[in-house]
Simulated scan of single mutants.
Amino acid sequence: MSQTCGFVAIMGRPNVGKSTLMNHILGQKISITSRRPQTTRHQVMGIKTEGDAQFIYVDTPGIHTLEKDRDKAINRFMNQAATQALRDVDCVVFIIDRTRWTPEDQVVLERLATVKAPVILAVNKVDRINDKSTLLPWLEEVSGRREFAAIVPVAAKHGTNVAELEAEVAKHLPESVHFFPDDQVTDRSLRFLAAELVREKIMRQLGDELPYQMTVEIEEFREESEITHISALIMVERQGQKKILIGDRGERIKNIGRDARLEMERVVGTKVMLNLWVKVKRGWSDDDRALKSLGYDLD
């Protein structure tokens, strides 16, 4: 039997479950998650090989239209990264949240209007629909918004119907040799994943206390036989944000470091020595040159 291999873009508005879906498909965390919208800032590739089929999923930042954020360089970067992922894909999985249709869902749908690849609609979080009798009429209604290759209700967090979604995606993989080794699960480095894990723990611990003007840069990543040394610089825009992040007597930054270190040890497979530093760099999130130096680069 010939091999198949293709790129699959996972699209949707912020906080709709794109990263959760990809992590479940891969069986491990590649994309970070939190309840905060716009947790994902980069294209993150997840690779799954099953027999002769290789799926290359591209998790994307949520496309958003918030007027107050639209002119920020980092928000422009995230929208560009999401749109760029649509180039030359073989299939798109468009995720929406239950039986709600928002203006941002409409924006994503309009971005997909020029995409020639088949689009599969995944209706996520169906386990949270209290009145299940509303689901079928909703699926019929939403099917009229464009011609979808398939519509699949899923609960990404619990894996409900995810296998059915993968089966639909598999129908659209072209015949091709595999682009990656069969045991590779992402194109991202351990250094990148370490930075993302620190950022995830900050977002989970701080909730709405810290705005989006926070990023993480790995300054040292040194692997020894039984221990990995990682130094991470957390960058914020104001002194008050630094104070919030460090917490009373440094308790908050200690908790963030502990949670990040434990998860890093599972990822890298060794003990981890993690050092965290917090620095104020005013205006970094609206400075194209600063963003590029921090790894926000579409190239």
Rank of each mutant, 00 (worst) to 15 (best):
L233F: 05
I227F: 06
P61E: 00
P14C: 09
N75T: 05
I74F: 02
P174G: 01
W138R: 05
I256N: 11
D97Q: 11
E226P: 02
F179N: 13
E263Q: 12
K279E: 02
D127M: 06
M11V: 10
A150G: 09
L294F: 15
A53H: 01
E67N: 03
M45R: 15
S285E: 10
R98Q: 15
V152D: 04
K18D: 14
V123N: 06
D248V: 05
W277I: 07
M214L: 13
E223A: 00
V216N: 14
R128C: 12
T33C: 03
K271A: 00
R36D: 14
S176V: 01
M235H: 01
R145F: 10
R199F: 12
N79A: 08
I253M: 09
I202D: 11
K279Q: 11
V8C: 14
W284P: 02
K171C: 08
R222Y: 07
G269Q: 04
L112S: 06
V115Q: 02
R146F: 02
T215A: 04
A150F: 05
E237M: 08
K29I: 03
Q205V: 08
P211H: 08
T114R: 05
R258H: 12
A73R: 01
L139G: 07
A82E: 01
P181Q: 07
W101N: 09
I56D: 07
R87N: 14
D288W: 13
K29H: 05
V44K: 14
V267N: 10
G283T: 00
